[in-house]
Structure formats: C-alpha cells, structure tokens
C-alpha cells in the first residue's frame, strides 16, 4: 500500500490538472479543496495521537489575515505564503506549549475556545480588521510578476498543488519516523512513552506546531485565491468542517485529507446546484454513509480496492 501511494497521488494530481483544464470553473473549487486538504492533513497528524482539534480553523484564519494585512506592502505569493506559515507556526508553538498538557475532550474544547476568542477579536476590532465585512486582499504578484485574471487562478492552483505535495511528503515521512510512531503511541500508551524517557508532550507539541503550519498555509492559499478574508474563517463551523473532511477522507493514510476535501467540495457544489436549500443534507448523508459503511473513509475504500486487486 505504501508503495502504491505515490503513484496514486500522482494519478490524483494528474486528474485534478485535467479537470482544471477541462472545466475552468472547477479550478477555483479544486484550489480551495487542495488548501483545505492541507489543513486537514494537520488534523490527521493530531488524530494519530487520538486528539481531535475543534479549533484548527484559527490557524487558517491567522494565515489568511497575515496575507490580507501584508499584501499591500509585500504582495508576492512567495513571500506571503512563508510569512503566513511562520505566523501560524509561532502562534501554534505558544498555544501548543499550554494545550499539549491536555487530552481528549479538554484538548478539543480548548482549541475550540481559543478559536472563538480569535473569531471575536477579528469581529470586534473593526478599526483594524473591518469586522465581519472582512478585508479585500490587495493585488498579488508572483516572483515579481503581476497576477491577473486566468493567470492568477492558475498560479494559485499550482501553488496549492505544490504546497499540498510538499506537506504530503513531509507527513508521509514524519508519520513513520520515530517521532511519528511515538505520536501514535500517545493514543495507545502514553505512560509507556514517559517510562521510555520520551516526553509525550514534546512529541505532541511537534505535531501540533506542524499542524498549525499546515493550517496557516491553507489559510494563506484560501485568502490569495478568494482575495477576501472574514472572521468566518475562524468560526467554529470552519473548524468542524476540517474534522468532517478528515473523517470523510479517512485518517488511515496521508492522501485521505485530499480525497476527503475534493469529495467534500464537489458534493457541496453539486448538491447546492441540485437541491439549493437542503445541500447540507447531502453532506450529512455522505458523512453518515462513511461512518456506517466505510469507517476508513474514501481512502479506506480505495486502499481496500487496491488490496483486493493485488490479491486477485
């Protein structure tokens, strides 16, 4: 399975490019899906340790607002993206030092609480953030070149692809490293880690900061793609969406978040077109279906099919 995965990733990437060329209006949707997939990858790291964050949209919001604030003075994608990641990573480190003392429901709820604090700050400090109106992102450049019209859309699509590929590779290596396996050990036998001389908190903190970096990158891409940021990015429903996608895509493999995000966005678009007011129901049914019939998510289904194909 591990050997088939890069090929699967490559095939998936190729399919996305084909769709983006054939149906330009989907390109925007797919860019957002890739960005969300990156954030969900961060959720997946924490899930490995058995921890669910219901507040990770806050790091996406941090990345997005960094882009909105910095774009007028240094509007280059290649500057904004690392800057957004850095900001999210630093905040993730500060919060992480405190939050990695907690587990399970406390971990989930503290993340939720902090994300709602950020949401209210973004909403209340109108003078700086323009409150719930949000901020329009100033025109962007890439490597010094101005970005406009379809070219901008392609640049953001490509950026999302490259960043997704990069984090996919990082997560893949990380999860089978001693640190990644120790992370999974937090879920099953945290005391043992301590009695092996390993700081479980330290192990979880690394994952937490990595997940904040990923969410920060996702938020930056979303901001640069939609060119508009609002406090809703930090709202708890946005965090819930990330967890939803993690379950839909499946936590068993690092491709899961991307499969989940693309599935999620496509269901959303087509269900909204087909049923207008009740499109959330389609998402709900999809999640219900996954939990009842495919607990491994979309990734679990694909992995199962591949395994069967190999056996026969």
């Amino acid at each position: 399975m591990r050997r088939a995965e890069p090929w699967l990733a490559l095939a998936g990437a190729a399919a996305l490019v084909v769709v983006a060329v054939a149906a330009p209006w989907l390109r925007f949707i797919l860019t957002l899906a890739l960005a969300k997939g990156i954030a969900v990858l961060g959720i997946l790291l924490l899930l490995r340790a058995g921890q669910v964050s219901f507040g990770h949209a806050m790091y996406a919001a941090i990345g997005a607002y960094v882009v909105a604030f910095a774009a007028p003075s240094m509007g280059d994608v290649l500057v904004l993206l690392p800057l957004a990641m850095l900001a999210a990573g630093v905040v993730g480190l500060v919060i992480g030092v405190f939050i990695t003392r907690y587990r399970e429901i406390f971990f989930s709820m503290l993340n939720l609480a902090l994300s709602m604090v950020l949401y209210s700050l973004l909403e209340k400090f109108y003078a700086i953030t323009k409150g719930s109106d949000g901020i329009r992102v100033a025109p962007l450049r890439i490597a010094g070149m101005a970005m406009d019209g379809p070219m901008a859309a392609w640049v953001m699509f490509a950026t999302a692809m490259v960043v997704a590929a990069m984090f996919w590779w990082v997560a893949r290596r990380y999860l089978v490293s001693p640190m990644g396996e120790a992370l999974a050990g937090i879920k099953t036998r945290e005391t043992r880690l301590e009695f092996m001389g390993v700081s479980a908190r330290g192990v979880l903190l690394v994952a937490y900061v990595l997940s904040a970096l990923m969410a920060g990158a996702a938020g930056a891409i979303i901001a640069m793609t939609t060119r508009h940021v609002t406090p809703l990015l930090a709202y708890w429903t946005s965090s819930g969406e990330l967890v939803f996608i993690a379950i839909l895509g499946g936590a068993g493999g690092v491709l899961g978040p991307f499969l989940g995000a693309v599935t999620y966005e496509l269901i959303r678009v087509y269900a909204a077109a087909a049923f207008a007011d009740i499109w959330q129901m389609a998402l709900g049914l999809a999640l219900l279906g996954v939990i009842l019939f495919a607990p491994g998510g979309v990734w679990g289904v694909i992995a199962g099919l591949l395994r069967r194909a190999r056996v026969t």
């Binding site: 490293s177 001693p178 396996e181 999974a184 050990g185 879920k187 099953t188 005391t191 092996m196």
Partner: peptide, 25 residues
C-alpha cells in the same frame, strides 16, 4: 504497557529509538 496498535517489532523498535533519541522526524 504496550503500544497496542503497533506490532511487537515496532514496539521494540520504539524502545530502541527512545534510547537512541526519538527526535528524528
């Protein structure tokens, strides 16, 4: 106190890695 979702080999390997230094991502 074993890591129940890991194999026996992985359990042993984790202990060995813990001795050598687990901080390799």
């Amino acid at each position: 106190q074993l890591f129940t979702e890991h194999t026996v080999l992985q359990n042993a390997a984790l202990a060995i890695a813990a001795r050598r230094g687990v901080w390799q991502p």
